[in-house]
Design a protein around this nucleic acid. Structure first.
Ligand SMILES: [Mn+2]
Ligand SMILES: [Mn+2]
Ligand SMILES: [Zn+2]
Ligand SMILES: [Zn+2]
Lengths: 141, 141
DNA sequence: TAATAAATGCGTTTAATTTTCATTATCTTC
DNA sequence: GAAGATAATGAAAATTAAACGCATTTATTA
């Protein structure tokens, strides 16, 4: 059991809610999910779970390095599996569609900027917002 | 009176709270301020004002193009005067010190990335976080 | 200065997230 | 495999930043 061991390694107890949350991230077609998304998904599939547990688990997973937390401009935190290889995001302001990208040039220039300002760079957040060109792109509340 | 005219141009009524908020931004040594910062500053200097007014005025000023709203990772919105020329930010995770920068290379590459993904870029947010090297840098709550 | 339309302050409300606490499940040990 | 220690859970209450409703006050305009 893959997810079981992944949890074991974090030192966290292997519980049903935790397994399910991990499972949702690993099987969902949408990889960027909010606490609410997870919660509804679990309720929908008949799980008995409290929203507080979801929030707790997400934060624990983040601290354990399993998840990454993002703040798009929606106001709510968005999580995704920590794939280890860094990437940034471009988000459609119309339909919410998210695409990922890595641009070595941008990464290098950021380090350079930090150096120029006497900072040791720890992390960065870069979100590009715009209009996408998906055929089914439309504003969704 | 400079600030008076600046307000006039926005179509908003020239009121004391609005003048004072504008004045704080134009005279403060720290240019990136939260609603709370403004509120405390005004209470401190004897103004009679409600926090709701601050929130309302900040949003109105943002819509009028007088202010820019940022979301650093503090959780609360941060505002600064809209100097018209775009810049990004590098923030010290220890002391909260903020420096501004513009890097044309990064700007160009962002546009390029957007194009490659079929997006029309509307805006972006880039924050670099790290440790600064100010002599008086230390963790402040 | 009076009429009108907008702005203010106070208190209430919302939305996301966190905390408290009693109950329950997991892990470890025997 | 059962018992004890410890951590996790769910429900409800608490917190926090921000928005809102409304009666009252103020700025603008005539
Ligand atoms: Mn991603
Ligand atoms: Mn700035
Ligand atoms: Zn779209
Ligand atoms: Zn510092």
């Amino acid at each position: 059991m893959e997810e079981h061991d992944e949890l074991k390694k974090t030192g966290l107890k292997v519980t049903l809610p935790r397994l399910k949350v991990l499972n949702i991230f690993e099987s969902s077609k949408e990889k960027h999910l909010t606490a609410e998304d997870i919660y509804k998904e679990m309720l929908g599939s008949g799980e008995e779970v409290g929203l507080a547990t979801i929030y707790r688990v997400l934060t624990q997973f983040e601290q354990a390095g399993l998840l990454i937390r993002h703040h798009f401009e929606s106001g709510k935190a968005v999580f995704e599996l920590n794939e280890k290889s860094h990437h940034d995001h471009i988000v459609c302001l119309q339909c919410g569609h998210v695409e990922e990208f890595v641009n070595e040039g941008i990464e290098k220039l950021q380090t350079q900027v930090a150096n120029e300002h006497g900072f040791t760079i720890i992390e960065h957040s870069l979100y590009i917002y715009g209009d996408c060109t998906k055929k089914d792109c439309e504003y969704k509340k």
